[in-house]
Design a protein around this nucleic acid. Structure first.
Lengths: 151, 151
DNA sequence: ATCCAATAAAAGGCATGATAATTATTGGTC
DNA sequence: GACCAATAATTATCATGCCTTTTATTGGAT
């Protein structure tokens, strides 16, 4: 039972780090004149890359809850950046697409987001990235339910 | 300009991992019969270890905002787990202490929290922990404001 | 003693995360 | 073709994160 130099702290460290990243990105977006939250950006980014996606699919991809997606889409729709089109063949679903304004915002905000991403990663190496992914995935998997039933 | 195998994903990965940890811990607390959220636990833990701490000090230590601490303390006070005592020499401050019930809850919940922590870290090594800390701290520091003025 | 900037906490507003309950629709089954 | 479990989305509720404004108090300057 090696007691990992205060291994207790990993939750806290991840929590403070993600807050820092969020705050930095939010500040950068706001300072650049974008009326967007980080999560609103995340949805715009996904809709751009998967035009016509439904809300539940979007929820699954972004690891958000359906109610959260509903609310954020409401806001984005009010801002005129996203449209809820009817899906063909299933009247329960919506086909989410970006409006022209939404596409414009996407292209304008992308470089800003990319810059913050680069700034955060800084001079960390490719090897660091592989460590990072391995450790995060490992923690995630350690909490994953044993999927007894496969399809 | 090595393009780090989709280095873009680190925000997303940290975000999903911390959500997973939070959800696992919350579920474990609830299933064990504790009427506590993760953040309420975090404050109880800190008050236990720093008896008499003030709300702002608590906010700083936990990286939460003062308004957030006010609200969580309100809840913990209503639950009878925390008391707001008057600080000596400064009537603006409160001296936060756990009630007897609060102390009992602390001792009862601690092993549960520790178990989840161990489960999450799993078989990751001490070397992994050092990589983890180095990478997280590095990202954090990359966003830290250059503190031009040192006291 | 008086005024004033700074501090501790609270209050109000908006956005998100999570859960539970509800509505509309779908696809099967009998 | 009526019944019913499953699905997509919404609504409601509570807790948290962050920001701004306000109140009470403090300590120092004049």
């Amino acid at each position: 039972m090696t007691h990992h130099s205060d291994q207790r702290a990993y939750f806290f460290k991840i929590d403070t780090t993600i807050k820092k990243i969020r705050n930095a990105l939010q500040k950068r977006l706001t300072d650049s004149g974008f009326d967007l939250t980080v999560d609103q950006w995340v949805l715009i980014d996904h809709i751009f890359r998967q035009n016509g996606i439904s809300q539940n699919e979007l929820a699954e991809l972004t690891f958000k809850d359906p109610p959260t997606v509903t609310r954020i889409i409401d806001i984005l729709q009010k801002k005129g950046l996203v449209e809820r089109g009817l899906a063909i063949g299933d009247r329960r679903k919506f086909r989410l697409t970006l409006t022209d304004d939404g596409v414009a915002i996407y292209h304008a905000a992308f470089p800003v987001v990319a810059e913050i991403r680069r700034k955060g990663w800084g001079s960390l190496s490719e090897a660091d990235y592989q460590h990072f992914v391995r450790i995060m995935d490992s923690i995630y998997q350690n909490f994953a339910e044993p999927t007894g039933k496969k399809a």
